[in-house]
Amino acid sequence: MMKPLRKLLIRALGFERYIRFVSHVYLRLVGAGWGKKQYPELFFLQKIVRPGFVCIDIGANLGYYSVALSRLAGPSGRVLAVEPIPDFQAIWQDNVRLSGVDNLTLLPYALGGQATIVQMGTPERDGLLHHGMTKVAASNTQEHYARTYDVPMRVPDELFGGLGRLDFVKCDVEGFEFEVFRHMQHTLRRFQPLIQTELNGLENRQAVTTLLAELGYKPFVLSERLELIPCSAAQLASAVTADFYFQPESSPISSARP
C-alpha cells in the first residue's frame, strides 16, 4: 500500500516537492511525540544530549537529527551539520527553522581522505528513489543510481580542526563510515565524544569497530528499555543494518539526563 502511494505522490509532486512535503509532515509528527517505537534512536537523544553540547550530524540529509540536536543543545550549544547534496541542503535549511534555535551551521561537503570532488548517487530500487540512501558512488559500484551529483569532499580532521569542544557525533553515510572515521582520528582522540553510527555492510562495521577500539571506544546498542547495553559479538557479526553507539572507556557518558 505504501509503495503505490509513494509513487503516486512522487508523480504528482515531483521528487523534490515530495521529500520536502514528507519531511515537513514527519518533523511535525515527531515534534508531537509520534514515532517513539519506530525511531527509538531519535528519541533517545533526549537522554544523552544536554544543553551546551557541541554536536556533529554527519549525513544530515533532510535535517531530522539536526532539528532534534539543535533543540536539545539549546542556545548555549552548537550543531554542525554535514550534508553535501544541494537539493537536500535547501530542504535542510527549511526544516531546521522548525527547531527555533539559532545554533546550526551547514557544512556542504562529503567527508573522506582528501580535498577533492567526488560523485554521489541517489539509488533507485523497485521504481522508487531512496533519498536516505544517497552515498559516495564509488563505495557501491553495484548500485543503480537514478541521480548523481558531483560534490566537494573535505578531510574531517581538517574541517573540525578549529573546534574547542565536541560531545556527540552522529554518522550515517551509507557504508562510507570507515573512511570518515579513519580520517577523523585526531578529532576523536582529542575530544572522545559519544558516537552514534548506522553501520551498513559487515566489512565496514568490523573495520569501524576495530578502528574505534584502537581509539579507546567500546560498542553498545540500544535496548528495548532505551538503555545502552554492551554490544554482543553476534550483533557485530550480523549482516542486519543497525545503529551502534561507541562510548569512550575513559569517560563513559551516562544514558540518564541529570
Rank of each mutant, 00 (worst) to 15 (best):
20 R>Y: 10
230 P>T: 10
77 G>N: 06
146 A>H: 05
116 T>G: 05
196 Q>S: 12
245 Y>K: 01
163 L>I: 02
77 G>L: 03
197 T>P: 00
85 I>R: 09
172 D>M: 00
154 R>F: 01
28 R>N: 12
191 F>C: 11
2 M>I: 07
215 L>W: 10
118 V>Q: 01
208 V>E: 00
241 T>Q: 12
184 M>Q: 03
218 K>D: 14
249 E>W: 04
251 S>K: 13
181 F>Q: 04
81 A>K: 00
110 A>P: 01
104 L>G: 06
93 Q>P: 04
1 M>H: 13
50 R>G: 04
241 T>P: 10
123 P>H: 07
230 P>V: 11
123 P>E: 01
136 V>Y: 11
222 L>P: 03
249 E>R: 15
8 L>M: 15
27 L>C: 08
107 L>Q: 04
138 A>T: 07
141 T>N: 06
93 Q>M: 13
228 L>R: 15
21 F>Q: 09
128 L>A: 11
63 G>D: 01
41 E>W: 00
239 A>I: 12
160 F>L: 15
237 A>D: 14
226 L>A: 14
191 F>N: 06
171 C>N: 04
27 L>M: 11
211 L>C: 15
203 E>A: 14
105 T>Q: 11
117 I>G: 06
255 S>F: 15
255 S>N: 15
181 F>A: 04
250 S>Y: 10
72 L>M: 12
229 I>A: 10
58 I>Y: 00
256 A>Y: 14
14 G>W: 11
6 R>H: 08
214 E>W: 10
44 F>Q: 04
5 L>G: 00
68 A>P: 08
215 L>C: 12
175 G>N: 08
217 Y>N: 06
228 L>I: 14
66 S>A: 15
36 K>N: 03
199 L>G: 06
208 V>P: 01
176 F>K: 05
248 P>T: 12
216 G>P: 10
11 R>G: 11
187 T>H: 02
126 D>N: 14
52 G>S: 08
3 K>T: 03
126 D>Y: 12
103 N>T: 06
208 V>G: 06
221 V>I: 15
46 Q>N: 13
180 V>S: 08
118 V>K: 10
204 N>L: 03
135 K>I: 02
207 A>T: 02
143 E>D: 08
139 S>Y: 07
131 H>G: 07
144 H>K: 13
219 P>T: 03
162 G>S: 08
199 L>K: 00
176 F>A: 12
164 G>M: 01
158 E>G: 09
37 K>T: 11
31 G>Y: 00
79 V>C: 03
83 E>N: 09
109 Y>V: 07
23 S>R: 08
240 V>L: 11
235 Q>Y: 01
86 P>M: 05
169 V>E: 01
20 R>P: 07
46 Q>E: 15
30 V>A: 13
236 L>W: 00
254 S>C: 14
234 A>I: 02
250 S>M: 09
96 V>P: 05
90 A>H: 05
77 G>Q: 05
39 Y>E: 05
183 H>F: 14
114 Q>C: 10
89 Q>E: 03
251 S>V: 14
62 L>A: 10
187 T>S: 14
156 P>D: 04
157 D>G: 09
209 T>W: 11
56 I>F: 06
31 G>Q: 07
70 S>C: 11
219 P>K: 00
82 V>Y: 00
180 V>Y: 09
191 F>A: 10
207 A>H: 07
236 L>Q: 05
159 L>M: 13
203 E>K: 15
140 N>V: 02
167 D>E: 08
164 G>V: 02
242 A>P: 05
198 E>C: 00
180 V>W: 01
